[in-house]
Design a protein around this nucleic acid. Structure first.
Length: 878
DNA sequence: ACGATCACG
DNA sequence: ACGTACGTGATCGTT
């Protein structure tokens, strides 16, 4: 942490492909309990552990070869020819290898048309010119050509952890050559493994002898007359091959890489991620070793004071404040204590002291006293349980870190701050344990943990702020996410009233229906079995009843709804199973599940996850109130149980109409799409009319349905296969639809092309409010990974901008209700809609106010449109 | 702990 | 040739 800029860099450049091959062939073909081969990943990991420990790098990267062909193939088409295909046992390990590297927090890089060598050659040159110390690690001796006074090349011997270090001196000693002459050696002797020919008949001995007297390939041919006999013949006959071979063996040191040394800084592994991937791979010995070292980690000593009473003098204008919670269920869990920190002081305040201190409460709700926190929404909601108000939140560590990179998982504070190189705080798991063994530790341990958290916030805040500024994301963070946290905290605390009797009544009815359907199914099957078990159901349908198995999953037959629907005409049992599934889902998830979540106040208090999705959307848990049924009437009835919390009040629901397509219109500036929204036309019908070249009046239901699917596809990052699946049509036809769509909406097409190109150039995409998502796979040579990243590049700006807009609307709405002095309460957000409860006397005003505010949350080149409805229950807001 | 399934936008 | 629509969470059965 205290590492100053004056400390020299030590840069480790690893050749990923070469090392993976080495590890694969050096170790026996290990298989873990899940049947995955792991030897290459294991060997690579062991090597990584050792090298990090011994070399203590400040910067690291693992470079990979991209694709099958490189610029070298243009020179010599047989380059690397005759090489055996990568064994599948090794190929399957590459995804895990990438996961391991990511968990270590090490950068990965690959570049179309170039090999790992070239990336490393280019980076090492950059480092050399800056005077930095470099270590290159590979299994390929070619790399030794890169050695210099500041660069050492480590080549793995036999095993993978056994290493030979090639310095300039070592190369001189061993071959009598300079690093540059290694290339000449390859030119003369070739390299069987890369299918570099060299001069036939010239081996290492001869090559070294020739170079000793002539210095280089060029030198040998300038003095060719000094050779005689067979040797001269061979050399003369193969002069071209010698030069080509030399060229092939030369590592490119000016590859067009879009990454610089500065971006490689290495801050150590993300322990949580490492545990995850090692568990997946079943690397037990490494896991045990980590637990051992985790406890050994030495933290900087911290002095703090545990307060039994609060002297107002310690409460400053700016303080880090942390509320420690026993678990993530902050609407119900124990509150374990509060800590405060400034530059010089750290305090721990037990909850009993907090509760009794009027001074603290006053300071806490004073908006001019700036609080730096880690999860201000949790604190807002948890303190509201005790009737304590929190105002003046000026920093939120979790939100800041999330804005900087939404792709990371924010499990606890230790994992967040590790991203910023800070390690002086334990993970919650280390302090409380996990599973059945979880418990509150003795007071001294607990207090230190809590104290360290406030200290951590204070320490890491400037680093997060700097990142936000650098990325021009401060406004997104400060004007959007931070104020939203408070709004969300209040919404969660308010909760939504649930009519338990209504749910129980529906549950009874459903149970009876399910019993009946169950016995019907068993009757039709001729035996009893568990309908909920896809395995047992598969056996009944596809073996006993002999129905055709149309799709398979990893584990057996697929019995998913889309598969069963295709079988509906073939056996009476199918429709019963579909009905059983539908009703069973309602009963277990939405009746029984929901009832379990109702608190003593007769309300459900969801938690909106604000730092979770990669696109910027919220998510909702315990219970999830963002997926309450609506599409089918039976399910929709569940919404009758969501009622206002005051007598005679009403529920109000307002949703954005086609917000994602409007965002697309805005970003693509496609003329026809923009005009369609300006004219307030039905967008799917308009699309159908354009794509099928028929007047609006002649658009049939099926045409509109197809157009709607295409519009969805466009938003998702279209592919012909995806569309064909959705519409159950041949892929060719789907491709044709897409083609016609792009002809009609050329602006959309060029937007899609541009956004993917931008993502390739920048490594990330952005939304309306400058939210970022990094897409490292966009340059991958793996078709699947790359395609996925490309679709994400198209989808994230759309989905994420829509998320930005409704978040802004929520903040504006909260302010509007406050400003108008209204009693109406905002309760829920469901991605494109907001749900309120309101007293009847405010209804008329509200029905105007909400659309007004939502439609003007941001200004796009197309209008935003909001539909609003009210009723006695959520069900009735349609 | 994980995959299959299905609920939502 | 490759094989998937984007983003989530809860429940169930199986390992």
């Amino acid at each position: 942490m205290e590492r100053g800029n004056f400390v020299a860099k030590k840069i480790l450049l690893l050749d990923g492909n070469s090392l993976a091959y080495r590890a694969f062939f050096a170790l026996p073909l290990l298989t873990n309990e899940n049947g995955i081969h792991t030897n290459a990943v294991y060997g690579f990991t062991m090597m990584l552990q050792k090298i990090i420990e011994e070399e203590k790098p400040t910067h690291m990267i693992v470079a990979f070869d991209a694709g099958k062909t490189t610029f070298r193939h243009k020179t010599f088409s047989e380059y690397k020819g005759g090489r055996q295909k990568t064994p599948p046992e090794l190929s399957e390990q590459f995804p895990y290898l990438r996961k391991v590297i990511d968990a270590y927090g090490i950068k990965r890089y690959e570049l179309d048309n170039y090999e790992a060598d070239d990336i490393i050659g280019t980076l090492s040159l950059e480092a050399e010119q800056a005077g930095d110390e470099v270590v290159i690690i590979s299994g390929d001796k070619d790399m030794t050509q890169l050695a210099s006074s500041t660069t050492t090349v480590f080549i793995t011997r036999k095993g993978i952890t056994d290493i030979e270090k090639y310095t300039v001196e070592h190369i001189k000693e061993k071959y009598g050559l300079t690093p540059n002459q290694i290339i000449d050696m390859k030119g003369l002797m070739g390299d069987a493994s890369d299918n570099i020919p060299g001069v036939p008949g010239v081996g290492e001995k001869t090559a070294l002898k020739l170079l000793a007297s002539h210095g280089s390939v060029e030198g040998v041919y300038e003095a060719i007359d000094l050779q005689k006999g067979k040797m001269k013949e061979k050399l003369v006959a193969n002069e071209d091959l010698a030069y080509i071979s030399k060229q092939l063996a030369t590592i490119e040191r000016h590859a067009p890489i879009e990454i610089s040394i500065e971006e490689l800084s290495y801050a150590g592994p993300n322990q949580d991620e490492l545990v995850k991937v090692w568990t997946e791979l079943a690397f037990k010995s490494l896991l045990e070793k980590m637990e051992y070292t985790a406890e050994e980690t030495v933290k900087e000593e911290l002095h703090f004071e545990v307060l039994t009473a609060i002297d107002p003098a310690i409460l400053k204008d700016e303080m880090a404040v942390h509320l420690e919670l026993y678990d993530e269920h902050y609407h119900s869990c124990d509150l374990l204590g509060v800590s405060l920190a400034t530059e010089t002081e750290t305090y721990v305040i037990p909850m009993t002291v907090v509760e009794q201190s009027e001074e603290f409460n006053k300071w806490f709700k004073d908006p001019s006293k700036k609080k730096f926190m880690a999860d201000s929404k949790a604190a807002t909601a948890a303190f509201l349980r005790m009737g304590i108000e929190l105002k003046g939140v000026d920093f939120d560590l979790m939100l800041g870190a999330y804005i900087v990179n939404p792709s990371l998982t924010y499990t606890d504070m230790a994992s967040i701050v590790q991203e910023y190189g800070y390690r002086d705080v334990s993970t919650n798991e280390q302090i409380y344990g996990k599973g059945a063994k979880k418990k509150v530790p003795e007071e001294t341990i607990l207090n230190e943990h809590i104290a360290r958290k406030a200290r951590t916030i204070w320490k890491v805040r400037p680093l997060v702020m700097k990142k936000l500024e650098e990325n021009e994301q401060f406004d997104l963070y400060d004007k959007l996410e931070l104020p939203l946290a408070t709004v969300l905290g209040q919404m969660e605390s308010l909760g939504v009233k649930v009519d338990r009797d209504q749910l129980s009544e529906m549950g009874k009815e459903l149970s009876h229906k399910l019993e009946k359907i169950e016995s019907d199914i068993h009757g039709l099957a001729g035996q009893e079995f568990n309908i909920n078990s896809p395995k047992q159901l598969g056996v009944i349908l596809f073996e006993k009843l002999g129905l055709p198995a149309l799709k398979k999953t990893k584990t057996g037959y697929s019995t998913a709804a889309d598969v069963l629907e295709k079988l509906e005409g073939q056996h009476e049992i199918i429709s019963h199973i579909l009905m059983y599934r539908q009703l069973g889902k309602l009963l277990s998830t939405y009746i029984e599940g929901l009832l379990k979540e109702v608190h003593e106040d007769g309300k459900v208090h969801t938690r909106f996850q604000q730092a979770l999705t990669t696109t910027g959307r919220l998510s909702s848990t315990n219970p999830n109130l963002q997926n309450i049924p609506v599409r089918l009437e039976e399910g929709r009835k569940i919404r009758k149980a969501f009622i206002p919390s005051e007598p005679d009040w009403v529920m109000v629901a307002a949703d954005y109409s086609q917000i994602e397509l409007r965002v697309l219109a805005d970003m693509s500036e496609d003329e026809r799409l923009v005009q369609a929204f300006k004219d307030d036309r039905d967008i799917h019908t308009t699309t159908a009319s354009d794509v099928f070249h028929v007047p609006i009046e002649q658009v049939t239901g099926d045409m509109r349905r197809a157009a709607k699917a295409v519009n969805f596809g466009i938003v998702y990052g279209i592919s012909d296969y995806g569309l064909s699946q959705n519409l159950s049509i041949p892929r060719k036809e789907a491709a044709d639809f897409i083609e016609r769509y792009f002809t009609s909406f050329p602006g959309v097409k060029s937007y899609m092309t541009t956004i993917v190109a931008d993502a390739k150039r920048d490594g990330f995409v952005t939304t309306l409010m400058n939210r970022r998502r990094y897409l490292p796979d966009i340059t991958s040579s793996n078709f699947n990974l790359r395609s996925f990243a490309e679709r994400t590049a198209m989808n994230t700006p759309i989905q994420g901008s829509a998320a930005d807009i409704i978040k802004k609307a929520m903040i504006d709405m909260d302010a509007a209700l406050e400003r108008e002095g209204m009693q109406t309460r905002m309760l829920l957000q469901v991605h494109d809609e907001l749900i309120f409860e309101a007293p009847p006397e405010e209804l008329e005003k509200l029905m105007k106010l909400v659309p007004e505010v939502m439609e003007h949350a941001v200004k796009l080149i197309v209008p935003l449109k909001v539909d609003i409805a009210n009723g006695a229950t959520w069900y009735d807001t349609k």
